[in-house]
Every structure is written in C-alpha cells, then in structure tokens.
C-alpha cells in the first residue's frame, strides 16, 4: 500500500510524524505513520474504530507517556525538534500542545479556577482576570458565564463544559490544540457551536481533531488523514495510515479505494 503524504507539499510544518510505530506492550497498535501538519490549519483524523487515530493523536503531546505499556518508535518533530528526545520535558511540551478530550472533563472547581489552574502552574505573569476573560471569549462562552464565574464548572451543560475545556486549553496560549472526538458526547446544537469555534480558532492555532463523524471532518478540516485497521496474524488489529491529503480531495477524489469506500459510507 502506498502512502500519499508525499502528494501534499508544504512550505511550513508545525508537526511532522516520521515512520511512527506505537506499541501497547508487545503488540503493534499503529504502524508506519507519516504525516506533516501545517500551521493554522485544521487536520482531521478519520477512520473506523480501533484504527489508532486517537493513539496517534495522543503521541503528539506525549499523553501516551501516561500509559505504562505504551511505547513509541519513529520520530515526531515539532518545529523541527524531536519531541521524544531525551532532553524534552513533556510538561513543557504539553503547555504548547494542548488537548481537549472526548468527554468534557472540567475540574470540580469554579469556572474561573478551571481556566486559571493551568496558567498558575505554568507561571503566568500577566493579568489573570484578563486571561480568563479572553479565553472564555475565544471559546464563545463568555456571554453565557460572565456573571457566574464563581460557579462550579460541573454545573454547566455538556456543551458548555466542553467549551470550558477548550477555553482551559486556550488559556495556556498554546501553539497546537489536539481534540479527541470533542463532540461525540454533545447534542447537535452544541456540536455546531464547537465546530464554529474550531473555524474561529484556526486563525490562531493549529488544530488536530479526531472524529468519527465524516460530515464533521468535511465541515471543519482543511486536511484529512484516513486511517484503517487490518487484522494481524496473531488475531489482533493494527492501524495504519491509508491516505492523507487536502480534505476536499479525500472526500471527492481519493487515491485509494478503501478511502473511497469509507467516505461514501460503504463500511466503517
């Protein structure tokens, strides 16, 4: 199977995955992923369940470090520096590459403290009130919560909670935001709000989003990577990158037949 990441030519690259293999224990979960992610673009990872798209996403800010059995081979370059280099402090990396999770996970703290938490531990020297306000404004949540900043983050609706989590990530003024199926626990209206938000954030941030929803991928992303999984001899499954290209190309004239079948809804 050929990889078509080469068909994308980029002048500037924020993240660059080279021959990435991810193992859980001794079993290979994803093999040989090569992707270049350009700045200020939205890149979507799509594919059937178990194809390793979330696994790859979690490598980008070394969240997989937290899973004891996980092991990574190959390289991931962030602005040309290998993030798996021994001298890299994952804590420093995660300040620059933020993350939003599948289920909204606000802390059991006030809305204000949910946002201020990350800034405080990262030694933010600016005006905290201002940072909280800008972050909430950027996450399109300010108008809904400005009079109740002392209220618990858990008291918000699901969609608001997810936007709070996005605001929390933005507050660190990151470079890249990773989103792992950020809308899968939300209703359609909240989903629409988060999608609109992604469009607005694109101007300032590079966004990588994993989604099960192909319409969502085609709506929000500029580039799309299609992952698939194939059975291994040992009876497990291993994920791999089938095709990576501009989103309209993936959805309208993909190179691979598997991509064609997946985006037209014939499997997955």
């Amino acid at each position: 199977m050929a990889f078509n990441s080469s068909s994308v030519t980029m002048t500037e690259v924020v993240l660059s995955l080279r021959k990435l293999n991810v193992f859980y224990g001794s079993s290979l979960a994803v093999r040989d992923v090569n992707i270049d992610i350009p700045p200020n673009q939205v890149v979507a990872f799509i594919g059937p369940s178990g194809c390793g798209k979330s696994t790859v996403l979690r490598c980008l800010n070394r969240m997989n470090d937290l899973i004891p059995s996980a092991r990574v081979e190959g390289q991931i370059f962030y602005h040309g520096k290998d993030i798996y280099d021994k001298v890299v402090d994952p804590v420093d990396l995660r300040r620059r590459i933020g993350m939003v999770f599948q289920k909204p996970n606000p802390f059991p703290k006030s809305i204000y403290d949910n946002i201020a938490f990350g800034a405080r531990i990262n030694g933010y020297k600016g005006d905290m009130d201002e940072l909280v306000e800008t972050s909430l404004r950027k996450a399109a949540l300010w108008d809904e919560v400005k009079d109740q900043l002392k209220k618990s983050g858990l008291a918000l609706s699901g969609g608001q909670q997810q936007r709070l989590c996005i605001a929390r990530a933005i507050a660190l003024q990151p470079d890249v935001i990773l989103m792992d199926e950020p809308c899968s626990a939300l209703d359609p209206i909240s989903t629409l709000k988060v999608e609109d938000l992604i469009h607005e954030l694109e101007a300032q941030y590079t966004i990588v989003i994993v989604t099960h929803n192909m319409q969502q991928a085609s709506r929000v992303s500029d580039y799309t990577a299609f992952f698939n999984a194939e059975p291994t001899e040992k009876g497990g499954k291993v994920g791999y990158l089938v095709e990576y290209d501009k989103t309209d190309k993936i959805f309208n004239s993909p190179q691979e037949q598997a991509t064609q079948e997946y985006v037209s809804g014939r499997f997955g």
């Binding site: 962030y78 602005h79 520096k81 280099d85 001298v87 890299v88 402090d89 420093d92 990396l93 300040r95 620059r96 990262n122 030694g123 933010y124 020297k125 600016g126 003024q173 470079d175």
Partner: peptide
C-alpha cells in the same frame, strides 16, 4: 527546548 513563542515573557 522548543523554539520561543509569542508572549513568552508572560510565561515564566
């Protein structure tokens, strides 16, 4: 280890 970003002086 990574290249500086805008507003880096605010983060210490």
């Amino acid at each position: 280890f990574f290249p500086p970003m805008a507003d880096d002086s605010l983060w210490q």
